[in-house]
């Protein structure tokens, strides 16, 4: 059996299990959509750009949240759970490779992230009358999306190595998720309201760049003046997200283990 075939086989059972577990479905998957509905309804400000409302800004930015929830949290908590319930131990006693196992997880995360993003965009379009961008923007969307999913999944995996108990994984993983959203222009927009040192901190992490990338796709070009640099800075988005993919991959290779460390 090839590594890829087994990876797809793992992805298949990962998906079956995810969708049969209603708790995961509701709390990981439906939560970003619910927050978008709330935020978009509560904050109705409009900007000096014609046809742009706060709900459109939230729709674009919250795709970053959606990916954090499906990639970072699902991956991190999933791996901690697999280490605890014997999944990894079982697989390590069979010929399957670690690469196939991880491919399966990435496959799960990719499917969930696409579905999550479709839900968020659908809410933006059908509930908040956001218009979809033209073709050239979708290319930007594609690479921002892929880099975001890869960086977040690998980071989730790396972080899972320091999570001791699967029970607490969700809580631990959500701390950086929520904190970074406050300082990265997802919940608080424009980000320029924040003290500049806080913006500098946020700029180290991927979330700011993910949200900025998605805003560049879905908002009119004039909205770029609300960004920290007054620009979409797509080159820098690519650079920072790419760098995080590499850092996270190295962290994973260093920290991944099949079983819990010796007592």
């Amino acid at each position: 059996m090839s590594t890829l075939t087994l990876g797809v086989s793992r992805g298949h059972v990962e998906l079956i299990q995810f969708f049969r577990d209603r708790t995961a479905l509701v709390f990981t998957f439906a939560f970003p959509g619910m927050l978008l509905l709330l935020f978009g309804t509560i904050f109705q400000d409009s900007y000096d750009q014609p046809g742009v409302s706060a709900s459109h800004v939230f729709t674009a930015s919250m795709i970053a949240y959606g990916i954090l929830a499906t990639a970072f949290v699902t991956m991190g908590a999933g791996l901690a759970m697999d280490r605890e319930d014997g999944t990894l131990k079982r697989l390590h006693g069979t010929p399957i490779s670690a690469t196939s196992y991880i491919l399966g997880k990435l496959f799960l995360v990719l499917v969930l992230s696409v579905a999550e993003t479709v839900v968020l965009i659908a809410i933006g379009v059908f509930v908040f009358s956001m218009s979809l961008p033209d073709a050239s923007h979708w290319l930007t969307f594609a690479w921002v999306f892929l880099l975001s999913v890869i960086a977040c999944s690998l980071l989730g995996m790396a972080v899972s190595a320091i999570v001791k108990h699967a029970r607490t994984a969700g809580a631990i993983l959500n701390v950086p998720v929520v904190a970074l959203q406050f300082i990265s222009g997802v919940f608080i927009y424009p980000v320029t309201q924040l003290p500049s040192w806080l913006i500098s901190v946020a700029s180290i992490f991927p979330v700011k760049w993910m949200a900025q990338g998605f805003r560049s796709v879905f908002l009119p070009d004039g909205m770029r003046v609300n960004e920290a640099a007054g620009q979409w800075e797509l080159g820098r988005v690519a650079l920072v997200l790419g760098a995080w993919c590499v850092i996270a991959l190295v962290l994973c290779l260093v920290t991944f283990r099949w079983t819990r460390p010796d007592r």
Binding site: V13, Q17, G86, R90, G93
Partner: peptide, 12 residues
């Protein structure tokens, strides 16, 4: 290997 305390794949 027959595991002693596995609890995996509960939803399959």
């Amino acid at each position: 290997i027959v595991l002693q305390d596995a609890d995996d794949a509960a939803d399959l």
